[in-house]
């Protein structure tokens, strides 16, 4: 139990850092796919589909096994962070894109009629409204990302699942307890995150109705 809890620290770190990276990339990718320039749209579309289509674990393995052959040696924690960030960033970019598209055309037109520049319209009119639509989806993605951190145990990052597997090799008779507790701890991390997201959703929807 103690060892598991100490493994929870890197799990939470990975989740938060991965989420920060994914959040950033979501907006980059989302705006990229809505760009006026065909080239930007094409490139960001390709990158997004690439990371969505190739499976998180394959990406992890690729960074872990293949990059060193190209002379790039990353710390295993960095490998986990990059894979999680890019994978969920790709999913997040779809969230950003569709949320921006979901704001009615009339809102753009009202902005134009008040002579706002396209940057002002995006900043003050479109994004604040789109952001509300993004929150629940981002919340779900955050939980998915947390669940994804368990996979990085396979590339020797000593997070919670890794610790549990190591413990089981020594104390096979406690298997039930080890994995039972492991699931409970994951739940103890993800449930507050779910609550936090629901709260944020409520907070930001104030005033809409």
């Amino acid at each position: 139990m103690k060892n598991l809890l100490s493994g929870a620290v890197p799990t939470i770190q990975l989740t938060l850092l991965g989420a920060a990276l994914a959040f950033l990339l979501s907006f980059l990718g989302g705006f990229g796919r809505l760009s006026r320039f065909t080239a930007v749209r094409g490139v960001s579309g390709f990158i997004v589909e690439f990371f969505r289509g190739t499976s998180l674990l394959v990406q992890l393995f690729w960074l872990f096994y293949v990059l060193p052959f190209m002379g790039i040696r990353l710390e295993s924690g960095m490998v986990g962070l990059l894979a999680l960030g890019f994978n969920y960033g790709a999913y997040g970019s779809e969230v950003v894109r569709s949320a921006i598209l979901s704001v009615p055309q009339g809102q753009h037109e009202a902005g134009i009629s008040l002579n706002m520049t396209s940057l002002q319209r995006m900043r003050y009119i479109i994004l604040p409204q789109a952001f509300r639509t993004m929150i629940p989806s981002f919340g779900n993605l955050l939980i998915e990302l947390l669940k994804g951190t368990a996979l990085v145990s396979l590339v020797t990052i000593p997070e919670m699942t890794f610790e549990a597997l190591a413990m089981r090799t020594n104390d096979a008779q406690y298997t039930l307890e080890i994995f039972g507790w492991l699931l409970v701890i994951y739940f103890a991390i993800s449930y507050p995150l779910t609550m936090l997201m629901r709260w944020t959703e409520r907070r930001f929807s104030l005033g809409r109705l």
Binding site: G106, E109, A110, N115, Q129, R208
Partner: peptide, 23 residues
Amino acid sequence: FQHFHLFPHMTVLKNLMEAPIKV
């Protein structure tokens, strides 16, 4: 506009202040 297109995320007052300030 026919369908008003007020900004739903701003109060009435803010709807009127936004453009004079920003634009």
